[in-house]
Simulated scan of single mutants.
Amino acid sequence: MATTALIVGAGSGLSASLARLFAQEGFKVALAARQVDKLKILSQEIGAVSFAADATKLDDVNRLFRDVEQILGVPTVVVYNPSWRVRGAFVDLSPADVAKTLEITAYGGFLVAQAAAKRQLELGEGAIFFTGASASVKGYAQSAPFAMGKFALRGLAQSIARELAPQNIHVAHFVIDGGIRSHSRVEPEEKPDSLLDPDAIAQTYLHILRQPRSAWTWEVELRPWVETF
């Protein structure tokens, strides 16, 4: 398989860990975000190429894939990472905020996956990965929009995994069930490893990517020991 990886919704945290790991493993890495200024340091660090794109806009997505293909080659690994969260009492939710949540969390995933699948089908191989959350399988109180978006993204992943696996495209959905460690979010000393390490999550993405086709995983759940399920 060729080694071009595209991470949509790139930034700090998990997407940065994925970018670094892919680069270490010899992938050419493309990073896409609405604001590329935040990607400058990471791109320089790992030799990635950054692209400005809004994943909810069809023209942006089509242009993104054309540009990536021209500069780095067809992305044979595509990771969809964006999401948007709105919280509040159900009766107080703004319909506009709900629509934005669904657009970013789910509809953008459809646009990116469709663009990726069209190219990977021509190649006869590829992988499309979606980053989910606790809300992918559990609808929490006062979090209806996020649950709607993440449930939709999971349904998309399951549907196209069944459709595209026979055509040698590995689709997988990752339920990230818990908080992710960052510079601004650290676990208390009395609860070591109570937050997910983004580098450890990235290792799981790589493991799933390298699975033999005879034993593919379409979904995996990752959580620290403090989480109930």
Rank of each mutant, 00 (worst) to 15 (best):
A55D: 06
E45G: 08
I46E: 06
A19W: 03
F27C: 04
L21N: 07
L31Y: 00
I41S: 12
G47Y: 05
D59R: 15
F22S: 04
Q44R: 14
Q35S: 14
D59K: 15
A16I: 07
D67I: 01
S17V: 05
A16K: 08
D37S: 12
A23K: 06
L18C: 07
S17Y: 05
F27D: 01
D37H: 11
L64Q: 03
S12V: 14
L18N: 00
A32D: 02
V36A: 07
G11N: 03
R34D: 05
R66I: 10
V36M: 04
A32V: 00
S50P: 15
V36E: 03
Q24K: 13
F22R: 02
A19D: 01
D59M: 13
D59H: 15
N62P: 10
A16T: 08
F27K: 01
R34C: 06
L39V: 06
D59W: 11
F65I: 03
F51N: 00
E45Y: 13
F65Q: 03
N62T: 06
I41N: 14
A52T: 00
Q35K: 14
A53M: 10
G11V: 03
K28H: 13
L21M: 11
A19E: 02
L14E: 08
K28W: 11
A48M: 08
A32Y: 00
A19T: 04
F65D: 02
V49F: 08
L31E: 01
L31M: 03
N62S: 11
A16C: 12
A53Y: 01
V36G: 02
Q24M: 13
V29A: 04
K40L: 12
L58G: 12
A55R: 03
L39H: 02
A23N: 07
I46F: 04
R66C: 11
R66D: 14
F51S: 00
R63Y: 09
L58V: 12
L64A: 03
Q35E: 12
K28F: 10
A10V: 04
V29Y: 00
A32F: 00
A52P: 07
F65S: 04
A48G: 07
K28E: 15
D37A: 10
D54G: 06
E25M: 11
D54Y: 04
